[in-house]
């Protein structure tokens, strides 16, 4: 590096080096996930002939669909450098409460999605209020709301279930429908992923989330309202989680008060494996969706190989730690690349 610096303009080279160093590391991170997915696919197809079939591919995507939707919402929050552990509780609450209300008032059945958006926005806003206004660390705040929301559902449910007969028929049909050779849920998930990705890229709301996440202090000096950004991220995450809850509820059929409990682990695993940095500011919702497919593939392959269910937890946990470790390396690479540039500029 130092040898080439003599025959190039002094100012641009370090800048370029620094930028390409960081950007390259991030690109490698995303490609890494895809390569990992491919390797998984190869390994599983070599181990069992039942893996590499069209039907199995469909079933993987179907499992991944709901997880991907929830992961997209979580990714928005993680991009701000926070976490949402209450995602599973929001899903469960949305599914139980909304389907219960709609089951008792059939007039409301066409509007369940609107209700989900409302409920998700309220629950998300409460999370955001705790994190942004009261400045409770997100892990503690959402661990608290996890139990508040979950406790509320069990209080509301009073040990009863919402049966599949109470669900809106069109949601039931959506859960089993197949469009253009793929389950309808996969298309729904794809639509949500793309909409969110475009929103994050195009809308000022999305750009602010990235700006705040990559450097909260700088964002504040730049005049961005951090409170509003965080609450906005949590509201979006809450809405998406509530929709994911509706999808899961319609798929499951009979909904009890424990629906989707513990789901936050899988969702966070998907987000982290998909390359959304836990420090905030970098990563994409596409990555989170790919992370969901990776997890679904692992689960599917392990089931086909008849590996005990428990190993899944072990592998999932190890995958989170490994992914965060890789992120730490990437982070360090970016850091060293950018600080080197800064030092060079000062020297000049």
């Amino acid at each position: 590096m130092t040898s080439t610096s003599t025959d190039q303009p002094r100012k641009t080279l370090p800048a370029r080096l620094g930028l390409s160093g960081g950007a390259a590391a991030l690109k490698v991170r995303f490609i890494g996930v895809i390569v990992f997915l491919a390797l998984l696919g190869i390994a599983f197809s070599a181990l069992t002939p039942r893996f590499a079939t069209l039907d199995n591919g469909r079933s993987i995507l179907f499992t991944a669909a709901i997880l991907a939707v929830a992961a997209v919402g979580q990714a928005i929050v993680v991009l701000t450098g926070n976490l949402d552990l209450s995602v599973g509780a929001i899903m469960g609450m949305a599914a139980y409460v909304i389907y219960d209300i709609a089951g008792q008032n059939p007039v409301l059945q066409p509007y369940v999605v609107v209700l989900a958006i409302l409920l998700g926005a309220i629950l998300g806003a409460f999370n955001g209020f705790l994190v942004a206004v009261l400045q409770i660390p997100s892990i503690v705040a959402t661990l608290g709301t996890l139990s508040i929301y979950r406790g509320f559902v069990s209080f509301y449910a009073n040990a009863t279930e919402v049966t599949s007969g109470q669900l809106p028929p069109w949601m039931r049909m959506l859960a089993t429908a197949s469009w253009f050779g793929l389950p309808a849920y996969v298309w729904v998930a794809l639509a949500i992923v793309i909409t969110t990705a475009v929103a994050l890229r195009v809308l000022p709301w999305g750009r602010k989330i990235y700006a705040y996440g990559s450097n909260p202090k700088a964002a504040r000096f730049f005049g961005l309202n951090s409170t509003r950004i965080i609450i906005g991220a949590y509201v979006a995450a809450g809405i998406i989680a509530a929709i994911a809850g509706l999808l899961l509820g319609a798929q499951v059929g009979n909904i009890n008060s424990l629906l989707a409990s513990g789901f936050e682990m899988q969702v966070l695993a998907a987000v982290v494996i998909g390359g959304v940095s836990i420090w905030g500011g970098s990563g994409s919702v596409y990555g989170a969706a790919v992370g969901a497919i990776v997890l679904a593939t692992i689960n599917n392959g392990l089931v086909l190989l008849q590996v005990q269910e428990y190993y899944r937890l072990l592998i999932q946990g190890a995958a989170i730690v490994a992914a965060v470790a890789v992120d730490a390396l990437v982070q360090r690479r970016i850091h060293s690349a950018t600080t080197r540039r800064r030092i060079m500029e000062v020297v000049e």
Binding site: L268, A269, I278, G317, I320, V321
Partner: peptide
């Protein structure tokens, strides 16, 4: 948080 979230599942 991320580490112990991972080991929460792993353990």
């Amino acid at each position: 948080l991320a580490v112990t979230l991972g080991t929460l599942g792993a353990y």
